[in-house]
Design a binder for these strands. Structure first.
Lengths: 193, 193
DNA sequence: CGGATCGTTGATCAACTTCAACGGTCGTGG
DNA sequence: CCACGACCGTTGAAGTTGATCAACGATCCG
């Protein structure tokens, strides 16, 4: 259960055995069946969730009832409504499971306590958030700068695993496109533009 | 020069006087005149830059030559091509000054060294990046979910200072709109929709 | 004063959405 | 084990939003 987490952390900072077992005490394990919710819009998001197995999605539902994907998280990724988690405000995202999943959850209070007891974890999360921010910044510019086709090609190049593992209509939503549009784009690409 | 930086840091972590003077040694001051560049696309971004006075913009230029704003940074904000800075890759963003500015720069190497000597700075940047990530996540969903008019209203509500301080055509670009479109939207809003 | 920059307005256009229908596949319950 | 419904991707036709192109007036600044 903790193997995936530790190997992920150890890529960024080193941990002693004592720190490892201390660290474990701050987490709760949770299993989520396909289609079960981890978080629903309107709640407060109390956890950062590490996915040790499976696949989660986080998405927003607008007033018209349309879903807009925020991100997908599989083995080795974190998921949360980070805004809600950080500022203790109402969540804008739903999180549910696309596949049966095994998670490790940590609350805001435990994160606080853990980083005080193991300052290296501030460093781990600093690097994690720094990298996520870097990626998200590029994605945001891409979203505003490029055509639907360009965006899809960029994604397919930079994240082929996502395209293999996630249904096409959800990929479309992730890119801010109607599912029909993505279908047509793929057809055009297959026809050599 | 360092007053603004310290007051910003002290909102998130405490620092002793020794830590403060140690911290100073990792930064370089730099002045930037209006329209001068801090970073140009294609270079490596070597710095995180803290704005103690003035206003910076960071933006991407696409193959068609069109500019796409990434963010604006004024007193109390950081600016960088964080992807380039983090991964030592070629920058996608240009950064230049919209107003005469006073900056404090820190290199990747100095950031590394500073966080090792003052672990609390890992915590500071962890919180800083966590908050930025939270904001950027919401902005990205907003960008994919809402109409041009909704996006503008959200921005005007959440960040009125930006609208006061930044020219309208750059606001348009920040929202991923043509300047003419934003002009028409504002007209419609003024006419009571 | 003169040029550059910025916002505005009108007309046209293109990209993407919406709506509707259909065929294939998968998984579940009878 | 088969059948049915749900889900997913595809295709076509029509509609809409926002982009583009062009022209003009206002303001700022040197």
């Amino acid at each position: 259960m903790f193997d995936v987490l530790f190997s992920h952390i150890l890529k960024k900072v080193s941990l002693t055995e004592e720190e490892k077992s201390l660290l474990k005490s701050f987490f709760n394990a949770k299993n989520l069946r396909k289609k079960e919710f981890l978080l629903q819009e309107g709640e407060i998001c109390h956890y950062l969730s590490f996915v040790s197995k499976g696949l989660l999605r986080s998405y927003h539902i607008d007033e018209r009832g349309d879903e807009h994907m925020n991100l997908f998280a599989w083995e080795g990724w974190w998921s949360s409504d980070i805004y809600s988690f950080s500022f203790n405000e109402i969540a804008q995202f739903n999180i549910d499971a696309l596949e049966d999943s095994e998670l490790l959850l940590i609350t805001r209070e435990n994160l606080e306590e853990m980083t005080l007891q193991i300052p290296k974890m501030d460093r781990y999360f600093r690097i994690l958030f720094q990298n996520s921010l870097a990626t998200k910044e590029r994605r945001l510019v891409s979203s505003n700068s490029y055509t639907a086709k360009e965006k899809y090609i960029q994604l397919a190049d930079s994240n082929p695993q996502m395209i293999q593992r996630v249904p096409q209509n959800l990929i479309a939503s992730y890119l801010g496109l109607a599912p029909e549009t993505l279908s047509r784009i793929k057809k055009n690409i297959a026809l050599g533009k």
